[in-house]
Nucleic acid binder design. Structure first.
Lengths: 228, 228
DNA sequence: TAGTGGTCTAGACCACCTG
DNA sequence: AGGTGGTCTAGACCACTAG
């Protein structure tokens, strides 16, 4: 038995990936079970399981009890996008962060109801407009927000420490700068604007709904398969 | 000992999340070690480890040997975006997919070198332009592409099964439809266009570089914390 | 209903890092 | 230098589901 030994799950993961890329295992094909692989690799089944679960999380493999493990037919690539706090996003670029509250008043929101707070603000990088924030906060869920001026600290930042969420919806889209938005962002009317709409929830109650309109030139960068 | 028992890692994960949301453990705070938690939860340390690793992957916790585990100070939310094959993306919307090759010729690309293939094509949903694909393929890495007409099958689809990649860079941005692009997409000049630039690699060799320009109205939707 | 992955356990050793 | 997380093991039982 001169079988090479694979003693940790990362090595097993790499070997499985190698076989897929070398077409020893092709998409759609069922690969050997964990017991067989453990024997072949000379390790415990739990170690194989660890490696295979990581690959299944990444979308490379599809696993089902009884049916076994198959190489994914449509490798729906999963890209992980980091959604940082705006302050940090600006400071990570080596720029100086500044914040300016534009408006703050209570009102009625179609989804959040009557007890809602509407806050608009501008985040700047080196005193240049970076992103315009248009936010509604549910005061029923986050009553403390009613006592916050949001002049020194942005709602973006305040909410993180005062109203943790359990889940959120995010939508990325492209839009055109309207006249009003163009003035806020110091851009020309009709310029392309990257827009992020986000709703965050505490269980089933919506905490806040925000639209972030980024100044022209903004990009979101991410990687795929980088960690595997 | 009337301690509630947490017998599986999901239950432990839920309990940890509960304590964070209930502010029993606040951001920045070091939480008890795995041995202590295992004793408290009445389970094995490996089970606690499983739960904590999942939370660390999600960005909720920060773990370091010797230093211990802390609640993340800046919960850099990680949103997972699925990047499906265009055909599937259209069919998932209940629309009929169709594809039309626009141009195909070899040429020189500044990054891929002289042995490159340039392919432009249009993907349609119910015969309406959906996304314009502008792609370069490295023929040194994927020589089989030279014999492919890309008339019946799109390069987007062909590459998946014929040139698996190990990693990729992705950039999302917003742009304005130029005159030429507007004609391709059956849109008006100056309309907002969502753009995805992607470069995929096989180890250190770039396989393909593609720009996908989506017809106005396109959105990418994703969730955050949905799986936790 | 039988086979496969999902998970737990108790113990062990190791790698890393902070103090 | 010592404490913490990272990982492996051998064995066991359970949950799901294809045939």
């Amino acid at each position: 038995m001169s079988q090479p030994q694979f003693k940790n799950w990362q090595a097993i993961q790499a070997e499985v990936l190698r076989r897929i890329h070398a077409r020893e295992w092709v998409p759609g094909q069922t690969i050997p079970g964990e017991v067989d692989l453990a024997r072949e690799f000379g390790c415990a089944r739990a170690t194989v399981n660890r490696a295979m679960q990581a690959l299944a999380d990444a979308g490379i493999l599809e696993r089902r009890r009884k049916a076994g493990t198959r190489v994914a037919l449509h490798p729906v690539s999963k890209a992980t996008v980091d959604i940082p706090v705006i302050r940090q996003e600006i400071e990570d670029r080596g720029a100086t962060y500044s914040y300016r509250l534009i408006n703050r008043k209570t009102g009625v929101h179609p989804l959040l109801g009557a007890n809602a707070l509407h806050v608009t603000a501008l985040h700047q990088a080196d005193d240049t407009p970076f992103v315009f924030e248009d936010r509604w906060i549910n005061l029923t869920v986050a009553p403390d927000a009613a006592t916050q001026a949001f002049e020194a600290i942005s709602a973006n930042e305040w909410l993180i420490t005062h109203a943790p969420y359990t889940k959120g919806d995010i939508t990325f889209s492209a839009a055109i700068a309207t006249k009003g938005l163009a003035e806020r962002l110091d851009a020309t009317e009709g310029a392309p604007v990257f827009v992020i709409d986000r709703t965050t929830w505490d269980r089933d109650r919506a905490i806040t709904i925000v639209r972030l309109s980024y100044a022209p030139g903004y990009q979101i960068h991410t990687m795929i398969g980088g960690t595997i």
